[in-house]
Design a protein around this nucleic acid. Structure first.
Length: 155
DNA sequence: GCCAACGTTGGC
DNA sequence: GCCAACGTTGGC
């Protein structure tokens, strides 16, 4: 059991989109970074929980919690010629990009990036590391507990 | 829209 | 296998 943080642009898939999706489940498509892919392919397990983070928006931050709910399988968008995620070098026989499905667990009080940066216990979070661009990062038990506490205090 | 930081590509 | 050039991410 491992905790994660997964970034999504809310214009594309927001926490509300996830909550409204059929079965409250979406495939985590569009990852085109090998490290992030490897996390999904190798390290994630069904039942793992993840912080759902909104990036590339006016106020980036943690918007909710989701749960890994499938085995890894090919990201279909790599084969779609007019998709922004199309990969000309991807072949069906050995797909380059794998994803997992995630299911909605909860919408949480919104914890902005600015707020997270002010919490000393979170100073070592991968998300907050200088120059970090990884869209999927592990979250330690301590960081998870700290974030749960912040959310409780907010309610 | 800018730009820092990082990842990937491809020539050598 | 190095590394320059280029592309992308993502906060501001």
């Amino acid at each position: 059991m491992q905790y994660w943080l997964m970034k999504s642009e809310p214009d594309e898939v927001s926490i509300d989109d996830l909550a409204r999706a059929p079965g409250q489940t979406v495939p985590w498509f569009g990852v085109r970074n090998y490290q992030a892919r490897n996390f999904m392919r190798d390290a994630m397990q069904v039942g793992d929980l993840a912080l759902f983070y909104h990036s590339g928006c006016a106020e980036p931050g943690i918007a909710g919690i989701c749960e890994v709910c499938s085995a890894p399988y090919p990201d279909e968008t790599q084969f779609v010629a007019d998709s922004p995620y199309f990969d000309a070098k991807a072949v069906r026989e050995s797909p380059r990009w794998l994803l997992r499905d995630v299911r909605f667990v909860a919408k949480t009080p919104y914890l902005t990036l600015g707020e997270l940066r002010q919490v000393p216990e979170l100073a070592t979070m991968r998300l907050l590391a200088r120059g970090n661009r990884l869209s999927i990062t592990p979250v330690t038990n301590e960081e998870w507990a700290c974030i749960q506490k912040l959310m409780m205090e907010r309610q």
